[in-house]
């Protein structure tokens, strides 16, 4: 139980996926323009990451490892994730149309969000058990949400600022992200390991 709590807090605050591990930065900068989009995207990310951690862990442990085909890890995981996202999209469209309306448009974007593939690989690298993998996937999604929601707030303020011409758009957002990331560094050292 204690270990699981440590995974949750360490992933969300200390090793924040976006702000200290640089995973999912593209979508983080692209989608954080307004708050409602950020909520939709991060909801979809949490969902896909949790399911993907479970599925890729099973695929690795029960298919790749017994057959000694670990070198196919990258290629298998990305295909599993791509297929999974498609499947989730189809199932969600049929059974949960309201949720689909909220999250659906973000689903295709998630296949190429590097954070999802990273979660799957990290689960294996760190020798997590099945339960821990799911918890790690879920909290990685939450860490993405925390980062993107805070940053969406910062971006809304940024819109009103008078920025030098050459800093407009991406550069000033990156500098703002640097300060948000600096704030998160305050959490480092909270847990040893």
């Amino acid at each position: 139980m204690k270990e699981i709590l440590i995974i949750i807090f360490a992933t969300i605050f200390v090793e924040n996926f976006v702000l200290s591990k640089f995973l999912g930065v593209c979508s983080f900068l692209g989608v954080s323009k307004d708050l409602s989009n950020s909520v939709g995207m991060s909801g979809a990310v949490i969902f896909v990451m949790t399911v993907a951690s479970a599925v890729t862990w099973l695929v690795y442990t029960y298919i790749l490892a017994p057959l000694d085909m670990m070198f196919l890890q990258t290629i298998t995981f990305i295909l599993v994730i791509a297929a999974l996202v498609q499947l989730v999209e189809i199932v969600m469209k049929k059974t949960l149309p309201r949720l689909y309306k909220a999250l659906g448009i973000y689903l295709p974007l998630i296949t190429t969000t590097c954070a999802v593939l990273a979660v799957s690989i990290l689960n294996i690298q760190r020798d997590y058990t099945f339960i821990k993998s799911i918890v790690f996937g879920f909290s990685a999604g939450v860490s993405y949400m925390v980062a993107i929601l805070i940053f969406a707030g910062v971006r809304e303020r940024l819109e009103l600022c008078d920025v030098p011409e050459c800093f407009k758009g991406f550069p000033i957002s990156l500098v703002a992200a640097a300060f948000v990331s600096l704030a998160f560094m305050g959490f480092s050292g909270l847990f040893a390991g």
Partner: peptide, 13 residues
């Protein structure tokens, strides 16, 4: 200037 495109710059979607 480098504006931010809506979907990030991810080409997929």
């Amino acid at each position: 200037t480098t504006p931010i495109r809506h979907c990030g710059s991810c080409p997929m979607n």
